[in-house]
Design a protein around this nucleic acid. Structure first.
Lengths: 113, 113, 113, 113
DNA sequence: TTTT
DNA sequence: TTTT
């Protein structure tokens, strides 16, 4: 792993429940989307809110943590690496997707007593 | 700008000459691809080399720096934010692309005397 | 500012109320300590909790944000740069101190309704 | 290890040869100083160059890499965590020091053929 | 599709 | 001096 060559850090809220499954070689995989919100002023000085969605991939211990603790709406911070790949969809069209392979997860939701 | 919510750092070599142009509202825009290399051991213990390509977007001063100093093969480090968008290609197909809007560039090539 | 050459990111809780003052040239300065907690297993396999304390320096808008929103116990995330300096204490002894000049602050406490 | 709670990234040149030794429990430890340079404009608009020095601590594989490849003047990028501790110097005075425990090293010097 |  |  080279953290210094390819590293992403995000803070945001999950848009769905993590989808967890076992792969053929018995590894645990979780997928979930995360939204990051930012605001900036456009050329007219109006405040623009922008939401970006990112695809997170979690393996093994991170996937298990996701299954146990992460829910739709959870706020988390993650560190991972960018990974792009292509696949052929059901209609036979080649598609490209960029995902973030998560190395570390920090839960930001406060526990309720 | 929220650096803490959405931040990418990459170190790698450029795959092409930066394409620089002026936008309609007279801003300078540069596009260039960067490759990040990493290696890991697979389940058989073999060393696997993996190259990832990323799309960089540079505006204004960063674009001018790119035009002046960056060449195919240049090694750089960048910090930016992830941004995904869709567009319709020439055949009318909707496509998705993930790009990195660059905030800062560090040149890693050594000067020659 | 070179974010790529010297960058620190911390997530933790504040150990005191921010101390805010005006400097001679009318800039606002806030100082506050932040604790980062981590745990690791020692050679006997025992879980060890370790707390590190860091000195944060905030200027102007960040200092005003600190004065308004940050309290003892607040959880925040920051990005900044490492800066070390020496000074002479009241007994005439030369001392060294390392501080983090904060560029960006993210509040992690949840609002209560 | 919590990379998300306490993380430092530096790019700079080493100020000395790494000092490498074995600890009592047979681990390899290397110490070396790194300088980071930045420039900013002061209130008079003058460009000010500022050099900061940081203390790096490398253990085991990182220490061995340092011994083998790092020299005075080498340019590297590192990722690590901030750690402060106190010790009593030869004159019996209590001193404080902030160090960076290095997790990862990237060599930026170009190989010569 | 999240959240403020 | 924080917090879990």
């Amino acid at each position: 792993m080279s953290n210094l060559r390819n590293s992403v850090r995000l803070v945001g809220h999950l848009g769905n429940e993590p989808e967890v499954k076992k792969t053929a070689n018995n590894k645990t995989l979780a997928r979930v989307s995360i939204a990051t919100n930012s605001s900036y002023k456009n050329e007219k000085g109006e405040k623009i809110e922008e939401t970006q969605w990112h695809n997170l991939i979690m393996w093994d211990n991170n996937a298990k943590l996701a299954e146990k603790y992460l829910r739709k709406g959870s706020e988390i911070s993650i560190e991972g690496r960018l990974s792009s790949r292509s696949y052929t969809d059901n209609s036979g069209v080649k598609k490209y997707i960029t995902e973030i392979i998560v190395n570390e997860i920090l839960l930001l939701d406060k526990k309720k007593d």
